[in-house]
């Protein structure tokens, strides 16, 4: 069967020690037996490795940060679209999802397809709304409260027992053992990611994760559970292994079916010593470890693109248990000319 040629724009090319999902998503697409993708990288920084990885990224354009506003970003996408005829756009950062979701209709009118969660799905799974989410869908979640200042925490301190987890609205989480540490982490995260900060009950156990894809009608297209076998000091998985865990899969199916989740997602769960599962986060996109799912037999990036193109997708029913990934770092040698081109012209 002849592969379908598609121009796919995607972000998250920061394949660094805290990697974005752009490169793993690209690897999945390049492995596809159905799609022949041209990958158009959307980069925020001249030193993101992705633009220089020419065996994966065919062309890169710098884009303005979402914080610069919707219009500058859309203007830039319009320009890129004129040159590249983008078929599908996959935003891979939490921080840019809101902007792209808001612009979904405009993008569609331009002829660019996306496959993103709805605004309601995006909002209700927010860290600050997690207790309500848990109650609504019957999922165990740790108790948490959003705070806007450290004095806000003083008022609700009695509701928590130390340690607590101090979390940013998009990224970062630290375990704090007393009020002073809460203050330190509050300031550290707020300076980087803004407010609110979420204070979450600390649940002791093993962190396990699921990468999944929902079709927007309540069906789970694919889901693969994993345990991180090596965690960096930034809390990122540097190694992982796929698990046989019907309970985690059942929970994933339940959440996708009840929320009618549309798009990729990562469930972050804690399994306690009593074998209970607590959901600590839903990330509304495919995670950086998604290539493990591809290698285990579920090419979720490919399926996401097919769904965006409104092509038929058969749900995956199997994956290989015990498939491992081990991340590594690599010093890529780059030409100054290329750096110059990306820095000055914003294209490479």
């Amino acid at each position: 069967m002849e592969k379908i040629k598609l121009n796919i724009a995607l972000s998250g090319l920061n394949n660094i020690d805290s990697p974005g999902p752009g490169i793993p998503v690209t690897r999945g697409l390049k492995d596809s037996l159905l799609i022949d993708p041209k990958i158009i990288g959307l980069a925020y920084d001249n030193l993101e490795p992705g633009p220089y990885m020419h065996e994966l990224i065919d062309k890169t354009y710098k884009v303005p940060y979402p914080s610069d506003g919707v219009e500058p970003l859309l203007d830039r996408i319009r320009y890129i679209h004129e040159k590249e005829h983008i078929d599908v756009l996959i935003p891979n950062f939490d921080s840019e999802l809101f902007t792209f979701m808001k612009s979904e209709r405009t993008l569609k009118e331009m002829g660019i397809r996306t496959f993103l969660p709805t605004l309601q799905q995006f909002e209700e799974r927010h860290k600050s709304n997690l207790p309500q989410f848990g109650e609504k869908y019957g999922v165990k979640v740790p108790y948490s409260e959003p705070i806007g200042s450290i004095m806000d925490f003083r008022k609700i301190e009695d509701k928590f027992e130390y340690p607590v987890v101090v979390k940013g609205k998009f990224y970062d989480a630290y375990i704090a053992y007393d009020f002073e540490q809460v203050g330190i982490y509050f300031n550290k995260i707020a300076a980087k990611w803004g407010l609110p900060i979420v204070i979450q009950e600390f649940v002791k156990g093993t962190e396990v994760n699921v990468v999944a894809l929902g079709d927007g009608n309540g069906n789970t297209i694919g889901a693969v559970p994993m345990r991180k076998t090596y965690i960096t000091d930034k809390g990122k998985g540097w190694g992982g292994i796929t698990l046989e865990d019907p309970v985690m899969l059942e929970l994933t199916h339940k959440i996708i079916s009840q929320t009618k989740w549309r798009g990729g997602m990562e469930l972050e769960l804690i399994r306690t010593s009593d074998n209970e599962l607590y959901m600590i986060e839903i990330n509304p996109r495919l995670p950086a470890w998604v290539y493990l799912a591809v290698a285990a037999g579920q090419n979720l990036p490919e399926a996401l693109v097919m769904l965006a193109m409104e092509m038929p997708v058969k749900p995956f029913s199997h994956y290989e248990v015990g498939k491992m990934f081990i991340r590594y770092s690599y010093d890529m040698i780059c030409d100054l000319k290329e750096f110059e081109q990306l820095s000055t012209k914003g294209e490479l």
Binding site: T206, M226, R227, G240, I241, T242, L243, V321, G322
Partner: peptide, 14 residues
């Protein structure tokens, strides 16, 4: 899973 080499794998926990 137990292999002939003595490697034991628990697929539930990894």
């Amino acid at each position: 899973a137990i292999s002939d080499s003595g490697f034991v794998f628990d697929p539930g926990t990894g």
